[in-house]
Design a protein around this nucleic acid. Sequence first.
DNA 1: ACATTCATCCAAAGCGCCTTGAATAGACAG
DNA 2: CTGTCTATTCAAGGCGCTTTGGATGAATGT
Lengths: 342, 342
Amino acid sequence: MNLKQLSEHLGLSQTTVSRALNGYPEVSESTRKRVQLAAAEGNYRPNLRAMSLATGKAMTIGHVIPVADQHDVVNPIFAEFVAGASQVYKQHGYELTLTIAETRNEESIYRSIAARGAVDGVIVHSPKRTEPRLALLREIGLPFVVHGRVSESDTPYNWIDMNNRRAFKQATQLLIDLGHTDIALINGDESLNFAWLRRLGFEDAMRENKLPIKKALMASADLTETFGYQTASALLKCSDCPTAFLASSYVVALGIRRAIGQAGLQMGKDISVIIHDDELSYFDNDGAIPQFTATRSSVREAGILAADMLLKQIDDPTLFPQNTLLESHLTMGLSTGPAKRA
Amino acid sequence: MNLKQLSEHLGLSQTTVSRALNGYPEVSESTRKRVQLAAAEGNYRPNLRAMSLATGKAMTIGHVIPVADQHDVVNPIFAEFVAGASQVYKQHGYELTLTIAETRNEESIYRSIAARGAVDGVIVHSPKRTEPRLALLREIGLPFVVHGRVSESDTPYNWIDMNNRRAFKQATQLLIDLGHTDIALINGDESLNFAWLRRLGFEDAMRENKLPIKKALMASADLTETFGYQTASALLKCSDCPTAFLASSYVVALGIRRAIGQAGLQMGKDISVIIHDDELSYFDNDGAIPQFTATRSSVREAGILAADMLLKQIDDPTLFPQNTLLESHLTMGLSTGPAKRA
DNA sequence: ACATTCATCCAAAGCGCCTTGAATAGACAG
DNA sequence: CTGTCTATTCAAGGCGCTTTGGATGAATGT
């Protein structure tokens, strides 16, 4: 069932039917009713392609997920973020297309997306400390919202981010207050800005408390369970072991916990751990007392807000770029305790 | 830059330019070269919407992810599956759109997708034991591939699945061979077919070995860490505790491991655990000896195969439905050992 | 009675592409 | 030199929708 058929069926012109369905005022209420009824009966849905060709709007948002190569780790937070964003899109009649972009093709992929008219805007995931994508997207003229910030950018742009620096400063301070001085930071890839900011937050706190920042206690890589395990295992064997760990994700903390257990130590007693918890739905770090002390921030919520921001920007391109900085909540769990003096 | 502009720039008709770029033979090689060069220079990409309107093909595949409600758990395997599938789509010039469908709207969502002409086919995720979606999609006439099988379906359809029943039978047998008789099954939601089949596999082995199947040792729910922890904790307190666990996912096994540790027991010594491992990239259950004994099957690989199957089906709609049954590999890890007699 | 307004509705153009059917020109055969 | 092929190229229509610019008739005002 398409517009033509529907209009013939009703004995009306395509114009009138289209207007009736799209809420234009130049249609009498009685015919509008009639049209709506017939459309519902015939299960009529305007063809998205035709519509978008006619209006010039794609009614689609692109999510571009960067990976180093095809076999790279897929960051588990994407699914959760996208789950949030997609709610918003659905409400506004938008579709969501997903593109996995290898870093080396990134530019051509963005250009292609734009030139093909496939999307009205994109969400930029996993920004690096310096982001060539911003300039690229501006040049192309494609509206975008970054999930995360870019440290080194002068020109304003849309972003939504969690206050990584503050969260990790706060978490570090808590560990220091508990008496820990040798704190290890198991961080994400520090060429990514979120990880970089977390490190700065960590260093902020250490410096303010006049504690030495030891390179040996900092590691940075993809946040896999194995990375957490191996790094923590090694650190727990060294001469002056850390008494506390700061973990950049739940997953990596699982590895740390494994290492602690294997070393015959007890988490929350011998060794303290604080994680950043993105509140992934299958790791509900919850219950009466959460197992991990954590800085928490819902990445699904971030997805909702980012989608909202992007649609607003598309709706009104003259809008000045928006920013949203989410604060995390520090919640006490079972994984922290006072430092044991060596 | 669109076709018209490009053709005017070249002093050719749109027909010729279009044909030159799409590889039709009615164009001299010299002009084809000229056109290709100009297209590359002008960064010309055919507008996807116009193309799809003209050809009637959307050049897009839909992935529809069912959830119970908006706040539901997002299964972590989707991201990995999609990562695989998207490789294939890219190679063939297809886009991928993602839709999260609440079960209660499912029918209208599929109908809407089809009527809007937004996709050429869909991947059906998370099939239940009985699937109204199959009949629906057939009625609509939308090509589809199911990731998983539906137990109760007479009519053939495209699917790709892992041999869940066999995998769990095999895993159970291994535990039995190690001397375990009280084996707990921590399974996914058994209204979903994969979980149902795993249960059948488990029961197959128990029955063949004349061991009692105890309802009290079987649990079924969303595969979260907490579910694993709580269930295992409870089971380890009961009078006749299980000496082994069969876990339907890595995540749920993490919870089980936590419970075991907390009970003062040792995994692989006091209690054995076998998991099914979907080989998620951030849980590389690998190394010299994997931490978990597991039946393994790459869900990313499944995504690749499913996408391939779907594109073939779209390419030739007369094709008889294809099936692929993947076998899992049982690999020994640190989490299993001989049963300790009580 | 005539001009003017207003509420409805419609015909047709256009979005950017592909594709059918035809035209043109050069090559070749008779 | 004319007729027939073949190789190239083109004009125009159509995909399904929105939207511009009327058209129509009834209602209103003078």
